[in-house]
């Protein structure tokens, strides 16, 4: 009989809350209080997340974000700046020593990305893992992923682009100079794709949830059982949001 993991859907949360939930689940799982968990989520308002090592003011046009009502947050994971709008974001939290998770970090990226690729396949999209942390379809990026390991626990979160607005994304990012903005936009348009672009019609978050969920179940041979955050996780979420992700000291720390 297949192992049961918890499955969460949390829609329309702020950037700080989304990142606080991921960390809360990581801590709760690391303390043995909750089972391995897969969460699908969306962002409201739209937001930019930056990697742990990035400089906020060097990556993001904060004034433009404010003008357009775009949220921003520093992640606990490395990697690059991501504009979260029209995407399915996933996170998986699982003990480092779980038999399904390779000890080697790069191998574990590949394995978890396998679940995302199966989810895409369930929607009729062929894709491959492109190290270090991307998934590409037809040579173009459709998913970016980032992993951290704390408390002997793996947290990997990532995106599946349902639609993409490269112009809007670039209007929010700092570019070396305005002259090359157009060139960068056209380059990125060549390198990025989306579910909508490949299938020719828009697929909503709700419409892609089942396909993606089945992808995780197939990859890890588990059953994902719908659940909710525990009271302990909700307390941790509040705590991490205040201490970290909604705190300017954290977001501006680099």
């Amino acid at each position: 009989m297949s192992e049961k993991w918890r499955f969460l859907i949390t829609e329309n949360n702020s950037a700080s809350k989304n990142m606080a939930i991921d960390r809360a689940v990581l801590v709760a799982n690391g303390e043995g209080k909750v089972p391995p968990t897969v969460r699908f989520y969306t962002w409201s308002p739209a937001a930019i997340s930056i990697g742990y090592f990035q400089s906020l003011s060097e990556e993001i046009d904060l004034k433009k974000c404010k003008d357009l009502g775009i949220d921003y947050v520093r992640r606990i994971t490395g990697g690059g700046a991501v504009f979260h709008e029209n995407e399915l974001t996933y996170s998986i939290v699982i003990p480092e020593n779980h038999p399904q998770i390779p000890k080697n970090i790069m191998e574990s990226y590949c394995r978890i990305c396998g679940a995302v690729m199966k989810g895409l396949k369930n929607q009729g999209i062929d894709s491959i893992y492109a190290p270090i942390n991307d998934i590409v379809s037809g040579g173009r990026k459709i998913s970016g992923n980032a992993q951290t390991r704390k408390l002997k626990t793996v947290l990997q979160h990532g995106t599946v682009l349902l639609d993409v607005d490269v112009e809007k994304m670039f209007s929010l990012l700092i570019v070396p100079n305005e002259k090359i903005r157009d060139k960068m936009i056209s380059d990125v348009k060549q390198r990025v794709t989306s579910v909508k672009h490949i299938l020719g019609s828009y697929v909503s978050f709700n419409d892609s949830v089942n396909a993606m969920k089945n992808g995780f179940e197939q990859e890890f041979n588990v059953r994902l059982i719908p659940g909710i955050l525990t009271d302990y996780e909700l307390v941790l979420t509040d705590k991490f949001e205040k201490e970290c992700f909604a705190n300017p000291d954290w977001n501006h720390k680099r």
């Binding site: 990697g51 742990y52 090592f53 990035q54 606990i76 994971t77 490395g78 990697g79 690059g80 700046a81 970090i105 270090i132 942390n133 980032a146 992993q147 951290t148 390991r149 704390k150």
Partner: peptide
């Protein structure tokens, strides 16, 4: 930058 370091 957009690299990864463990632990962060």
């Amino acid at each position: 930058g957009d690299f990864f370091i463990y632990p962060e």
